[in-house]
Simulated scan of single mutants.
Amino acid sequence: MTAEDGRAGATPELIVHRDAQVLAQAVAARLVTKLVDVLAARDEAHLALTGGSVGIGSLAAVAELPARVAVDWRRVHLWWSDERFLPERDPERNVTQAREALLDKLDLDPAFVHAMPSTDGPDGNDAKAAAERYAAELARFAAPDSDVPEFDVELFGMGPDGHVASLFPEHPGVYEEEPSVIPVHNSPKPPPDRLSFTFRTIRSAREAWIVAAGSEKAAAAHMALSGGGRVQVPAAGARGNVRTLWLIDRACAADLPPGLNRLASP
């Protein structure tokens, strides 16, 4: 597979919801249902979380959902596909926002919450060492023939430029396949230093969900779902090996061409 090829993995399926609020509620309901099903079949689940307004909004919607009590959260491993390389508890960190939106309201096993390292962690400001540390943590929970878990779901937001995780258009990270986690420097969106899954790690997911809302993201959605390559529009490369699900609102879907694999909204 070349870095230009955004088409490996499951063909995207598309569900369009009325607006950002309904979208967040729908993602929350879908996520709870998915985790209940996974935990009925296996002892543990692996979920990779994302940041961004819709991603964190979806977590807040889970917190408001009565059905969330049906999930045995102590059996859910929580990971992050990327993180802003900042001090622990910085309000800009994805994990900080996730804790405030949902995690602090759940009965979690602390050993199952795998936050990415911070700048005041054991590696200090060495982003490369921090990425290697997180890669080693992923490998601890991988099958013998892999170095990353097979995630049940990876959630991704998408920026107006089409970035997912901290993989930005034309940026060096979109060309990386090894290792499983990379440092990102000179990010076009602040802060400049980040940690991110590579596309190889993204493709380890059974299901990848891309969640996006707003007219400012319509052009990127059009590119990603019309055959664009992952170098120009990284969201095109976010694919699960069983299912790739785009969950977006009407504003984000405004420029999409006909003939896409659209599913009916619930």
Rank of each mutant, 00 (worst) to 15 (best):
D19M: 09
E170N: 14
G173D: 05
A129T: 12
P257Q: 05
V153S: 02
D126F: 11
S215K: 15
L102E: 01
S196N: 05
L103F: 15
T33K: 12
V36S: 03
W209V: 04
P66T: 11
E178Q: 14
V38E: 08
I15Q: 12
E92W: 03
R250H: 14
N94A: 07
G55Y: 11
A251N: 14
K105M: 02
H222S: 05
D161H: 13
R133G: 06
S81H: 02
V54H: 02
E100A: 15
Q25C: 03
L65I: 06
M1H: 09
L155D: 02
L23D: 01
S215A: 15
G9R: 14
G162F: 08
L245H: 07
V148A: 13
T33H: 11
A61N: 05
A218P: 05
L195Q: 10
L86S: 08
F156G: 02
C252N: 04
V174P: 01
P257M: 06
A218G: 12
E4P: 01
G52W: 10
G159K: 01
V22W: 00
H17Y: 15
R30L: 02
K34Q: 08
R200D: 09
A115L: 02
A24D: 04
G237F: 11
P66Y: 15
T11D: 11
I56P: 00
A45M: 07
D120G: 11
C252K: 01
A26F: 00
D72A: 10
V184H: 14
A8W: 12
D123R: 11
E207T: 15
P190G: 11
L256T: 05
D126S: 05
R42M: 03
G162W: 01
S81D: 00
E132S: 13
R68P: 04
L195N: 09
E64N: 08
H46C: 03
L31W: 02
M116A: 10
S53Y: 08
V16W: 09
S146F: 10
G9W: 15
T11V: 11
D5W: 00
R75M: 03
H222E: 13
V71G: 03
G57L: 03
K217P: 09
W246I: 02
S58L: 01
V233L: 08
A63R: 15
